[in-house]
Structure formats: C-alpha cells, structure tokens
Computed example of a mutant assay.
Amino acid sequence: MAAEIVAGHGDTTIERVITSGTFSLDGGTWDVDNNVWIIGDDKECVIVDAAHDAAPILDAVGGRTVKAVLCTHAHDDHITAVGEVFDATKAPSYLHPSDRMLWDRVYSVGPDHELSDGDRIEVGEVTIEVIHTPGHSPGAVCLRIPTLGVVLTGDTLFDGGPGATGRSFSSYDTITDSIRTKLFALPAETIVLTGHGDSTTIGEEAARQDEWERPEGA
C-alpha cells in the first residue's frame, strides 16, 4: 500500500504505510496488518514501528535521511523490519529497556539506544515526546507530537479501548492505569494514531472507558 499522509505542520508530515505479516508469542501465531508511521519533512524523517517488510517502508522514505527507528514496543510484528531498515539506512533503533527480553527473541544484538519517559526527539519542524505506558508490554511507549495534535500509541490504545493483555509480560491493570493517568491527561481533541487499524481521539476513548471489559486471563 502506498504511503498516506495523515497529518502535517509546515513541511513536516506523518505518513502511514500498512504492512502485513504475523505476530507470534506464547506458542501462537496470528496474521496481522500493522501501521508503520513515518514522521518528517523532505530531507529527514523517523520511522515508528518498522513492521514485517522493509521494502514499502523504504519506498515511502525515498531519498530522505532516516534519523531513527522508534519502537513503541518489541513484539515481533512491530520490529521484524528494523534490521533490514538499518542495513539500508544505518538509522539507529530506539527501544525502552523493559522490552529487551522481547527484542532478544528476534535479534541477537541489542537496539542502538534506549527510550525513556520524557525523552524528546527532534525531526523536521516538530518534537516527539516519549511517554512510558506499560501494560501491553513492560516497555511500551507512546509518542506525542503536540505541534501536530497527535499521539502514536502503538498497541497501548486503540479505536475501542486498551490493547491486548492476555499474553506474557502484559497486565490489564497496568495498561488501564497507563491510559487513564497518562493518555487521558492529554487534550481531548488529540488524534490517536494506533499500531493497527483506524485512528481515534483521546476524547472518544475517554468517553467510552466504562465499556471496557477485562479480557479472560488478563
């Protein structure tokens, strides 16, 4: 699928590329489509969640310098193209250290840098702010861009509620606390760009939190 521009400020845009593959954990494997986000201008960019297939991601990048590959978490469907992207661009990878045990299931060498709550990453005309939101995985992070009025939530918050918490290293109580204390503190009009599926807003999701149901086994 060709890249789709979903937001912009000046010369800086956010593009979405959808890639397809599988997610495997706890002995199961599922077919999934992932949202890959490319943030930048016509000279430089960062990639958020290099998933499955590097080719369409690199096509969307074009001749731009890739400053970083930012991982919202280290489930295999979100990081399997990081190595190929590095080989093509030499862009360093960033991951919260609490997800290192998941990363190590895919790669024999570690990510290049750690992400921490409160970190700021500059690209184009915008600043990306890192918010540690554990629950879907211990090192899950969300990436807020105030100038664009968006937050990239990976698998922490979706159109319809929290991400999955029925598998290893996840916690329903932790993810709901992360969402309520950190994400619902953002302006209601903030657009939520998710790791899979459609976008939503903070206000829409806050308004229907009473409909959340704890998954069986979570």
Rank of each mutant, 00 (worst) to 15 (best):
D112S: 13
W37P: 05
D155R: 05
E114P: 07
E189P: 06
D49L: 04
L183K: 04
D173K: 10
R105L: 14
V36G: 01
S24D: 12
P162E: 02
V192M: 07
F169I: 11
I47G: 05
S168C: 04
D11F: 07
D26R: 08
V32H: 03
T22P: 02
T65W: 03
V109Y: 15
H73C: 03
I131N: 06
A140G: 04
R105Y: 07
S108C: 02
P111S: 07
P92I: 10
D53N: 14
S170E: 07
G197F: 09
L157Q: 08
H136G: 04
T165V: 14
T12P: 08
V48P: 13
T22Q: 11
L58E: 03
E4N: 11
E213T: 15
E44I: 02
H113W: 07
V36I: 13
G160V: 11
P162C: 06
D33R: 14
G28R: 15
A2L: 12
E114M: 03
R16F: 01
D173M: 00
T176F: 10
V123P: 03
M101D: 12
G118C: 00
A185D: 12
E15D: 13
P56D: 02
E129S: 07
M1H: 07
E216F: 09
T200H: 01
D104I: 00
C71P: 00
W212D: 11
V69M: 10
D155K: 07
G110S: 08
H96Q: 07
A51I: 06
V32I: 14
A60Y: 12
D42W: 00
S178V: 09
E122D: 14
E122Y: 08
R100H: 08
G163A: 10
D173A: 10
L152G: 08
A55N: 02
R144K: 12
L157I: 10
